[in-house]
Write a protein that binds this DNA or RNA. Structure first.
Length: 425
DNA sequence: CAGCAGGGGGCGG
DNA sequence: CGCCCCCTGCTGT
């Protein structure tokens, strides 16, 4: 900012302070908030910009999340810590009791908050003691699969839960990634058989199952609100906005894929479903889905209840069996505390308001104790996994059931049976 | 009428 | 609990 040629340099003296103050004010007033963090039943409407600025984790998450106003459910993070972290992000400072420091750091690590957990920037506080996690390095994200990594990271980190840093060894999962694509297919192909392996790999990461595990604990520990964190659902705003587009995009893609299927399907008739489609669609879907859903790390889940990974299952869903709970691999042992889930809201964009307002129960699932499966692509919910899987196939375009007499193939076995009967009769 | 999507009930592990 | 099958409602041709 020099003024070499008659240029004048105008500086705003208190720019930083003013900016920070304004940001904080905006947060208080919930103005322009475009993402809601949910933890322990509390909702914090905040700004993606701020979160992205302070955490690559969030940055990536939003980068891959089409939703206009996503809700990120943070598990294993206490609301007190969340508030402290928000204060840290918005104001640059936060006061914390020494006794709470470790826990706060842990939370910061989970979220990869710069300055607290991520070395990116010089550690501001001593807090950074742990700072560099192995993964931080990974963060560089040069790699194409940041998400997964993140998830893993998360998982690992979380897993440690209270204690320590994750094993640095990037666990197996990474490896899986590579295979993932293919494996996916396979998995799909086997869908009927159900192998979870395949699933694990891919989905695994996202794995929420892990989440589930943890959840129970959490519940135990605190169940303040009925609202289950796991349950928050976000919707892709359907009616309302174009957003649908986003959500829908995915669908669209699926559809496309579906088309593809048909071709293949046709040929394969004989082969029965399992293999058929593997070919192409799967991947895209997955990808799309994963992206959409999982997004960055946050992921996935929706399932409610915590128990199972059901949620994830969905993802896995494609594979059909997915659910199985736990995919150990990724999930990891329980450690998992995983953390966050990104969900689609049913409500409209302004969910924030709503959420903020009341318990938001509506949108949020209330059946906390029951298992309820929420479709990440639409507002469909079902207490039956099977129904959920069946439904989810409509989004993925997967049509594992093909007619032996014609190219017809469907995602619903019942329909196939019905169809076959016509041939017979 | 065919196809699609979803709910309900029954069965087996 | 998960899966299967039946049935129903809706939509498009």
């Amino acid at each position: 900012m020099m003024a070499s040629d008659g240029m004048l340099s105008l500086s705003w003296n208190n720019h930083k302070a003013t900016f920070c103050h304004i940001l904080s004010t905006l947060r208080e007033k919930e103005r322009y908030t475009d993402v809601t963090l949910a933890c322990e039943g509390k909702f914090y409407p905040v700004h993606k910009l701020v979160l992205s600025t302070c955490s690559e984790y969030f940055e990536k998450m939003f980068e891959h999340t089409p939703c206009k106003h996503p809700v990120v459910v943070l598990k294993d993070i206490k609301c007190a810590d969340m508030e402290a972290l928000l204060s840290y992000m918005y104001d640059g400072v936060v006061s914390v009791l020494q006794q709470d420091l470790a826990r706060l750091i842990k939370a910061a690590e989970l979220l990869q908050i710069k300055g607290l957990a991520v070395p990116d920037e010089p550690p501001l506080k001593e807090l950074s003691k742990k700072n560099a996690y192995p993964w931080s390095s990974r963060d560089d994200r040069s790699s194409p699969h940041p998400k997964r990594r993140r998830r893993e990271d998360m998982m690992t980190s979380t897993s440690q839960g209270s204690s320590l840093p994750p094993p640095e060894s990037p666990p197996s999962s990474p490896q899986h990634h590579q295979e993932s694509n293919q494996s996916w297919d396979h998995s799909k192909s086997h869908s009927q058989d159900q192998r979870e392996d395949g699933v694990d790999q891919r989905v695994g990461d996202p794995v929420e199952p892990a989440v589930e595990f943890s959840s129970p604990k959490q519940e135990a520990s605190h169940n303040q609100e009925p609202v289950d964190e796991s349950l928050v659902k976000e919707e892709v705003i359907e009616g309302s906005e174009d957003n649908q587009g986003e959500g829908m995009d995915s669908r669209i893609e699926y559809g496309g894929m579906g088309g593809g299927d048909s071709n293949t399907g046709g040929e394969e008739q004989g082969s029965k479903f399992p293999h058929q489609l593997d070919t192409k669609h799967p991947q895209p879907l997955h990808e799309a889905v994963v992206e959409a859903l999982a997004g960055p790390s946050g992921m996935q889940g929706w399932l409610g209840t915590g128990e199972l990974g059901g949620g994830f299952s969905m993802l896995e869903g494609y594979s059909e069996d997915g659910n199985q709970e736990v995919h150990p691999a990724s999930t990891g042992p329980h450690g998992t505390q995983q953390s966050h889930q990104m969900v689609w809201l049913d409500y409209d964009t302004n969910m924030a308001d709503k959420v903020g307002a009341q318990d938001s129960t509506k949108n949020v699932l209330r059946n906390e104790k029951k298992k309820t499966f929420y479709c990440p692509c639409c507002s469909y919910t079902s207490p039956k996994v099977y129904h959920f899987k069946r439904h989810y196939r409509t989004h993925t375009g997967e049509r594992p059931f093909s007619c032996a007499h014609c190219p017809y193939h469907t995602s619903d076995k019942s329909n196939l049976i019905k169809h076959v009967r016509r041939h017979i009769s």
